[in-house]
Amino acid sequence: MNDAGSGAMLARLSEKSRHDHYNPYTRFSWPDTVPEDSWWMTPEYLTTHGTGLVEDERILKALARRETVNFFSLHVHGIRELMIGVSQRIHTPDFADYNEYLHHFLGEENAHMWFFAEFCYRYAGGIYPEAYSPVRGEGFGPAWEDVVVFARILIFEEIFDYFNSRLGKSAEIPAILREIHAVHHHDESRHVAFGKQLLKHLYARACEQDQAGPERRLEIENYIKSYMTYSVRSLYSPHAYRDSGMPKALETRRAAMTHPVREAFHSKVMARVDRFFVAAGIFQTAWGVGNDVSK
């Protein structure tokens, strides 16, 4: 199902995974505590940054702790979806060429899920629950379902990598946090490269199989863009805002989320994946043009 180029890429990624393999359970030196008076997240990556809505450093540090928990919780829940999606497809005929690499992929994602959850349980009382929607899902049909699932995975991986790559180098945050971000960033570069290749293939296959034509493609584009908006909103956790102890937590959250400075930041976070969707022909227009997360 794949051409020689993607076959070579899969072989290269598998080799790299074998070479870089580590035991996640012994990889980190977990300190007894992580000081609460330190910044758990560099201030410029807090969701209130640039809005002037919260000035009290005590509350901002609490928000940094709770947004770290939210961020890691989103990883845990996102990885669960990813592992379910991949597990359902590995060793099935349509994914036969990907089997070898998917084993590495699942193994690495399992490790990531463990260390993100481990941090939260050790130092912060656990993870936040998944944002659950009581409304049923999309129902685009099997071929498009593959596209939608892997597009969602790619979006969350790209968002997280934006933060991981930067916080993994931050001297301001405690060493254990810096290391977690850095390790994740190192593995994710492979996963993102793989995810893009796979998604292009799945999209081409769905277009070929689908009789619905351009209307369905537009519907998929709109759905993926809504998911990008949804993903940006998920960074502004109502739990984190409330648990930081700030007054009028939900009002402040909404004001921050829709602040013009933040809207520009959202486009920056999404720029790379947005460009990919346009270049791959999955988007006719970029999400970043007129994105509004209040929608």
Binding site: A131, Y132, S133, P134, V135, R136, G137, E138, S226, Y227, T229, Y230, R233, P238, L250, E251, R253, R254, K295
Partner: peptide
């Protein structure tokens, strides 16, 4: 008008 993705934010609005 309300899909599964928008519904999550809609519930936060109601809470607010």
């Amino acid at each position: 008008i309300l899909d599964s993705l928008a519904f999550v934010e809609f519930l936060v609005l109601l809470e607010e």
